[in-house]
């Protein structure tokens, strides 16, 4: 089937997709509840979670679900996200990337350099969010740490969350912008044309074409 041009190409397995969507859903919930507590202008978002106290109670548990699911996803995908020499050239030509002049770019494997950078940004942010989140989680852990640790953890948590949300906005936009990408995560397949245009080296590796 992989070699028959009439069929689409499998990009993500069932379990990879389920894993991704557990991360995505828990991210949305964690981000909305976190933003409610971050800026007064967004405190109304706490209504989505049953009010202020429930938002405070749920947020860290949602975060733990996200961190666990993300760990599983990162273990699946880290090796295809290793940065390579050709990624530098791709990044250097970022103008061609945003200008839809993809034909001028070097060949791309399963992920392009932008996707890889997003991946590693998410890894770093997730580690910071998880560790700092534990440090000021009340009423369970915060009292066990010196106040300066709690303060540093709080500000780092907010900063890492900001970078993560910005990264995810880019991630979602890229999926809308590059047509045919969303289906990779919803149905697991991409068209042969999609693969040939955006990930030619991956297509060749997959089909030998």
């Amino acid at each position: 089937m992989e070699h028959d041009p009439r069929f689409p190409i499998q990009r993500y397995t069932d379990s990879e997709r389920i894993n991704h969507w557990i991360v995505a859903i828990s991210f949305m919930l964690a981000a909305l509840s976190g933003l409610a507590l971050f800026h007064p202008a967004l405190f109304w978002l706490s209504n989505l979670f049953g009010g202020g106290p429930w938002t405070r109670i749920l947020h860290p548990f949602i975060g733990c679900v996200m961190a666990a699911a993300f760990l599983s996803m990162a273990l699946r995908f880290w090796h295809v996200n290793r940065l390579q020499a050709r990624d530098k050239q791709w990044l250097r030509q970022w103008r061609d990337v945003v200008g839809n002049r993809e034909d001028k770019l070097p060949e791309v494997g399963k992920y392009n350099a932008g996707q890889k950078l997003i991946f590693w940004l998410m890894v770093i942010c997730m580690v910071v969010l998880f560790v700092t989140g534990i440090l000021f989680w009340r009423p369970w852990f915060a009292d066990s740490f010196p106040i300066w640790v709690v303060r540093a953890a709080t500000v780092l948590h907010a900063a890492a969350a900001t970078f993560m949300i910005i990264g995810i906005i880019v991630h979602i936009y890229a999926a809308i912008w590059v047509k045919g990408s969303v289906r990779a995560m919803t149905r697991g397949t991409v068209s042969r044309r999609w693969a040939a245009k955006h990930h030619r080296a991956w297509l060749r590796e997959k089909t030998g074409q």
Binding site: E102, I169, V170, Y173, V178, K179, R193
Partner: peptide, 24 residues
Amino acid sequence: ALLAMGFTALFGFFHYVKVGPNDA
């Protein structure tokens, strides 16, 4: 932080309006 998030989303929207989709 809110400004940065807002501008990222806005930048994406205007990018789409200007260069359009990347459709194989």
